[in-house]
Each structure stands twice: as structure tokens, then as C-alpha cells.
């Protein structure tokens, strides 16, 4: 494997995807811990019912986050920020 191949391999890796994949991994780990506690240690049916509501909400929110992530164009993000010129309306009487 040449140096160019390695360079090409690394350039094809989407850093933002890895970053958000890491965030979502933490998220699902946390979701599991909450559901585990509610189902394992909860007394009566109420905690189990809340665990189901929580899971449903977590799935819906995760799907929404995934959908919004797919819509973001990260390559143009820095370009958009660079082209931003704030409009300063400073009254001339201040000078």
C-alpha cells in the first residue's frame, strides 16, 4: 500500500459521520441504562410503562436527528460562515 493509497483512504473518511456516530453511541448506551433501571428495579407496572414511553420517544427523536443530519451539507458549512458579513447599523452620531 503506497502513501497515496493511505492518504486517499483517510480523505474518504467522513469525520463528521464518525463524530456523530460516537455521540449516538453514547446516546443509545444512556438509553439502555435508563430502561434497564426502570425495568429491573421499578416496583409495579408504572416504571415499565414509562420505560416504553421513553424508548418510543428516544426512537422518534433519534430518527429525527438522523434525518436532519442527512440534510446538512457539511462541505458548504464553512463556506457559508465565511461569506457571512454582519450588517452593522451604527448611528453616525456616535462618531
Amino acid at each position: 500500500m503506497s502513501l497515496n493509497d493511505i492518504e486517499a483512504m483517510f480523505s474518504s473518511i467522513n469525520i463528521t459521520a464518525i463524530l456523530f456516530g460516537f455521540v449516538f453511541l453514547i446516546y443509545w448506551g444512556y438509553v439502555f441504562v435508563i430502561i434497564y433501571h426502570l425495568v429491573r428495579f421499578g416496583v409495579g407496572p408504572k416504571p415499565k410503562l414509562f420505560a416504553m414511553i421513553f424508548l418510543a420517544g428516544a426512537v422518534i427523536l433519534f430518527t429525527t436527528a438522523l434525518y436532519t443530519y442527512a440534510r446538512v451539507d457539511f462541505t458548504n458549512l464553512l463556506g457559508n460562515l465565511g461569506s457571512f458579513k454582519p450588517e452593522l447599523n451604527i448611528p453616525s452620531s456616535n462618531y
Binding site: I34, G42, K46, P47, A58, F62, R71
Partner: peptide, 29 residues
């Protein structure tokens, strides 16, 4: 930045949901 705002809002609500249910879990247990 409308799309990135939507994305950051979705991430915010993801963790908001976790925080909310952490509080509810501690209450129920």
C-alpha cells in the same frame, strides 16, 4: 444555517429527553 440549526435542535432534544427521563427514573425508583 437553517439545516444545521435543525440538526443542532434535534441533538439538543435528544439529550433533553435523556435528562427528563433521568429525573423521572430517579423519582420512580
Amino acid at each position: 444555517l437553517t439545516q444545521i440549526f435543525d440538526f443542532l435542535t434535534a441533538i439538543y432534544y435528544l439529550f433533553w429527553w435523556l435528562g427528563l427521563f433521568y429525573t423521572i427514573t430517579m423519582y420512580l425508583l
